[in-house]
Structures are given as C-alpha cells and as structure tokens.
C-alpha cells in the first residue's frame, strides 16, 4: 500500500541501548551509533540512560534527551525495539506494539509473585528530603 508520506533515506545510524552494568546489574546507555558498531565500539552521542534494575521505590529510571532524539529521528536514524518501547512508554512516541502485545499476554497469565508491591494508579509524591 502506497503511503502519502515519503520514506526517509537510511543514514546507517541507530539509537539503541548499550549495556554498561556489571554481572547481574544491568545498566544501559541510550546512544546513537553507526549500525555496524557494537557495544564496545565508538558512540556518536549519548542521548539518555536506562537503569533496568528497579530501585527501592520499585522504579526503573530512564533519562532521555528528547531534543537530540528528535534531531536524530529527523536525520533518519533507526530505532531499536527496546528504545522504541521506552520512548512509547515515556509518551514521546506512540506506544510500540510490542508493549501492547506484552500487556495483553501478561493479563492473560496468572499474576507472578513480587517482592515489592507494584505501584498502581498515580505514583505517591517523592519523600526524598534532598529533592
């Protein structure tokens, strides 16, 4: 099906996660890289970070530089699926279908036991005195 919007030329660059943690402690940088470079390889620009391990408030912290991400998307950089999901959850882009599919699969399955209670509804106000 032909689309009204013209396709973007690929520039061989992609926004993706680089694992920067240690064993059993995942931590990711969200970076712009040439498609053929790997995790160790040169990074063009870091546009955010993602702490995949929930903290004591049961939060996974994500930092994103929307301006730069917008710039790179406009340039025609690709998006890896996990980053696309994060951006969808952050409200910057439409929700990635993978998120929705995972959600309905989770709903179908019996709930797993959790060590920490999941936050439901609006998150409670921050109680860190330093903030």
């Amino acid at each position: 099906m032909a689309s009204a919007v013209s396709t973007f030329t690929k520039i061989g660059k992609v926004i993706r996660l680089n694992r920067h943690g240690c064993t059993n402690r995942p931590f990711y940088h969200i970076v712009v890289q040439n498609t053929k470079d790997n995790q160790d390889g040169p990074v063009i620009e870091q546009v955010g970070s993602f702490d995949a391990m929930p903290n004591n408030k049961n939060e996974k912290l994500v930092a994103l530089n929307f301006e730069r991400i917008q710039y790179w998307l406009a340039q025609g950089a690709g998006l890896s699926d996990p980053v696309a999901q994060l951006l969808g959850l952050s409200g910057f882009l439409p929700n990635h279908p993978r998120t929705l599919i995972q959600a309905w699969k989770n709903r179908r399955e019996p709930p797993r036991e959790r060590k920490i209670e999941a936050i439901k509804g609006i998150a409670p106000p921050l109680d860190n005195p330093k903030l």
Binding site: S6, F8, L73, G76, L93, P94
Partner: peptide, 8 residues
C-alpha cells in the same frame, strides 16, 4: 512513525 519523522 513515518509521519512523525516527517514532522520532526
């Protein structure tokens, strides 16, 4: 996504 890219 295509439209968004164009918009950006």
């Amino acid at each position: 996504m295509k439209s968004l890219r164009q918009y950006f």
